[in-house]
Design a binder for these strands. Structure first.
Length: 646
RNA sequence: GCUGUUGUAGCUCAGGGGUAGAGCACUUCCUUGGUAAGGAAGAGGUCGAGAGUUCAAUUCUCUUCAACAGCUCCA
């Protein structure tokens, strides 16, 4: 008999060789129907794997992330089976589970497939799922494995097997399909109840563009139809909220081929929204002792040679521009920090002056590959809400914590309530790509880890994600549709102060080197606004929205009263517009609703006579008539408290 | 940058080897209407750009530019 410890701490005894599925059945049949895989002593395995020694056991179901990924991985196999039956001779690359589904890279031997084919493949998959074939695991020798795939003529699998260690190779078979696979898998295909193949794309074998381009088919599966429907609904909703679509509809920004790709043009409404965001952050920063600075859009190439950016990114930047007479070289500013370092150097600093915090909404230009450009989230010219804090080594942690507070204040003010932070450290072994000493790196990494812990942030730690000059703390927010976005960033930098030979005079009357912290709560205004648009679906909070109130006179007879109301709103610093077209009120309301203007004031002879306004809230409807003063205080209260739309 | 798909009016889209289509938006006129589309008339396009095939190309072919999806990249 062996002891099995369950997650709640309960210990049960079973015969050696018992499987997770047996144990599930011994607990309840209902549970057994839901078990997709098991975690035995921390390792995810098939529910049918015999357990031979005392172990801890966690049964994995659809509600566990590992349960989902096991199901999706098995779904990739199911899709492969369907493909093989529909397109004999197809060869298979990799077919993993990914966040939100799975894909399989396949070589169709010159054949192409379309969206209609996806429906055919789905149908076949459903058929095979209903057959409820078991995913059967088999250990094979390297020779056997090679023999099998040589016979099949699948060079991709052969290449993969050649890199595997003999004795650790397993095959999984379901129905008529056998694949090289480490596993684990769900018990049988019948657990897959709802299938959607989402799209087709090209992908290089092993992600290397020198290799052959394979066809990648993406899909997602669920244990019931309802969850698939919800998933499809979210996809629809995401499409509706796409910031590129809303940006056009709400007249926030545009692009012009003539101006250049990746260079957004802000339309008046978008520009005003942007300025309000800037003003909001600027006020918060002034309160926290930041000092505004302004620097030019170009800088002498020597500036970036000093900073190290030229060496690292010069080839991938916009090329330098030259003065006609002297032949001096300038670069478009890819970063604000070198300029800020020079500002720091403009006057001698005492330890009493520190920390010094220079803030600038600095527009930077970076060459991004053509295929990378995407709406406002990936552009070639963008404005960072940048600041650089120069402090003493003993101030790093405290400054870092203050920045964390600021970032969270910004998120909360914009109703991003779910966020995590990623601590990005060096690669654990490969350290050639970093600038700076081992000692400084260790100090910086430690400061971040401690500050994040003391602030009680929900963090994940990633190695090999640090910038070349220092470790960082990146904030990821979850938007209203549950999608994750990377926004703000805080980075410790021991490198630039060294390169720019920044100094301060200490209490000991000696020269010391300050530490620099880069930080940007929004990251880039462009990207942030894109995320904000999608988060709120274009229904901006009242304090940010371009037009707060639309005044809708019922007919010309109410025009004079409408103008009077508009004047009073303007005096109260409320952004209002009058729709004075000779259209019917129904049409004006419809258009204002679609333009997502939060408040409408329907003004007719009745309101004029009573000196009132009839208030309508976007998406909610008629709120009834009230005194104008009452409406103004309603709006002002909502603005002051930075309420989210709903 | 690579692979695939797409490019027709300001927007959303239909069409198709022989004088270019709709709805919305726009302009003018009529209408003065009470909480999600009142009516009429008008204007608006080198069918992304360049070349080729053809008597004839917006339509077919090639090249190119851009957008979209994915891959690779991201200070």
């Amino acid at each position: 008999m062996i002891n099995i410890t369950l997650p709640d701490g309960a210990v049960r005894q079973y015969e050696a060789g018992v499987t997770a599925m047996d144990i599930a059945k011994s607990i309840s049949e209902g549970l057994a129907r839901k078990v997709l895989a098991a975690k035995v002593n921390g390792q995810v395995v098939d529910a049918a794997r015999p357990i031979t020694t005392d172990s801890t056991l966690q049964l994995l179901t659809w509600s566990d992330a590992e349960g989902k990924s096991t199901m999706w991985h098995s779904s990739a196999h199911l899709m492969a089976e369907a493909l093989e039956s529909l397109y004999p001779g197809v060869k298979f690359g990799y077919g993993p589970a990914i966040e939100g589904g799975f894909y399989y890279d396949i070589d169709l031997g010159g054949r192409t497939i379309s969206d209609e084919d996806l429906r055919k493949i789905e149908t076949k998959m459903n058929e095979l799922a209903k057959a409820n074939n078991v995913y059967d695991r088999k250990e094979v020798s390297k020779v056997e494995a090679l023999e099998y795939f040589t016979k099949k003529g699948d060079e991709y699998k052969i290449e993969t097997i050649n890199e595997l260690e003999d004795g650790k190779i397993t095959f999984y078979t379901q129905g008529n399909f056998t694949d090289l696979c480490r596993g684990p898998h769900i018990p049988s295909t019948g657990f897959i109840k709802a299938i959607k193949l989402t799209n087709i794309a090209g992908a290089y074998w092993r992600g290397n563009e020198k290799n052959k381009m394979l066809t990648r088919i993406y899909g997602v599966t669920f244990p019931n139809q309802k969850e698939l429907d919800e998933h499809l609904f979210l996809l629809e909703e995401a499409k509706k909220r796409d910031h590129r679509k809303l940006g056009k509809e709400l007249e926030l920004f545009t692009f012009s081929e003539k101006v250049g790709l990746g260079l957004p043009l802000w339309l008046p409404k978008g520009a005003l929204l942007r300025e309000r965001l800037q003003a909001f952050l600027q006020k918060a920063q002034l309160d926290l002792g930041y000092l505004p600075v302004v620097t030019p859009h170009i800088g002498n190439v020597n500036l970036y040679k000093t900073s190290g950016h030229y060496e690292k990114y010069g080839k991938d930047s916009f090329q330098t521009i030259h003065t006609p007479e002297e032949g001096e070289e300038f670069m478009l500013k890819p970063m604000n920090c070198p300029h800020h370092c020079e500002i720091y150097k403009a006057s001698p600093k005492s330890y009493k002056d520190l920390p010094v915090r220079f803030a600038e909404f600095g527009t930077v230009y970076r060459y991004e590959q053509h295929g990378e450009l995407h709406g406002l989230t990936r552009v070639r010219g963008f404005t960072q809400d940048d600041a650089h804090l120069f402090c003493r080594p003993d101030q790093v942690k405290e400054e870092f914590m203050k920045v964390i507070d600021l970032v969270l204040y910004v998120f909360n003010s914009l109703s991003f309530t779910e966020y995590t932070a990623q601590i990005s450290l060096r690669h654990q072994t490969d350290r050639d790509k970093y600038i700076g000493t081992e000692e400084n790196w260790n100090l910086a990494e430690q400061a971040i880890i401690e500050a994040a812990a003391e602030k009680g942030l929900n963090t994940v730690t990633e190695y090999d994600e640090a910038a070349f000059y220092g470790p960082k703390l990146d904030f990821m927010v979850k938007d209203a549709l549950g999608r994750k976005w990377q926004l703000g960033t805080i980075q410790v930098d021991y490198n630039l102060p060294e390169r720019f030979e920044l100094e301060y005079i200490g209490a000991d009357n000696q020269r010391h080197r300050p530490v620099m912290i880069h930080r940007a709560p929004f990251g880039s205004l462009e990207r942030f606004i894109a995320v904000l648009i999608e988060h709120c679906g274009g229904k901006f909070p009242l304090w940010l929205t371009p037009t707060q109130v639309k005044i809708l006179p019922i007919s010309d007879k109410s025009q004079a009263y409408a103008e009077k109301v508009a004047e009073l709103l303007k005096n109260a610093e409320i952004r209002a517009e009058i729709d004075d077209r000779s259209e019917k009120i129904g049409k004006k309301i419809r258009e204002t609703e679609l333009a997502k203007v939060p408040y409408m004031l329907v003004l007719g002879e009745k309101e004029a006579a009573d000196n009132k306004v009839a208030v309508r809230r976007q998406a909610k409807g008629d709120l009834g008539a009230m005194d104008l003063e009452q409406f103004i205080s309603l709006v002002q209260e909502e603005v002051t408290n930075r309420k989210s739309f709903e």
